[in-house]
């Protein structure tokens, strides 16, 4: 089975990574079968998107697009977009 994996790494301070992770987690439910999104914090915020079904690649693209948009919005909202990222 083909798997498409997209990794996003954001070098952010822990407080921002923690805020983003918690702000996004509640929506990280009811994903279609074959599509997943995992978030981990080490020295960076790491987000991994996986798609096991080539027919759902558009859903994956839309999920990545919305997630990055939400992250950008959070950083903007907290006044951190230009300051620390």
């Amino acid at each position: 089975m083909q798997q498409i994996k997209v990794k996003v790494r954001l070098d952010l301070p822990y407080d921002l990574s923690n805020t983003i992770t918690k702000a996004l987690a509640a929506d990280n439910i009811n994903f279609p079968d074959g599509l997943s999104m995992d978030m981990m914090i080490d020295e960076s915020l790491n987000i991994v998107f996986k798609c096991n079904d080539i027919n759902k690649i558009k859903s994956m693209i839309n999920t990545i697009d919305e997630t990055l948009e939400h992250i950008s919005m959070i950083l903007d909202m907290l006044g951190e977009k230009n300051a620390r990222s």
Binding site: T19, K22, A23, L24, A26, D27, E66, M73, I74, L78
Partner: peptide, 13 residues
């Protein structure tokens, strides 16, 4: 989801 993400981010931060 836009409103909820903002609310959750502000609440955590």
């Amino acid at each position: 989801r836009v409103g909820a993400v903002i609310a959750r981010a502000l609440a955590v931060y």
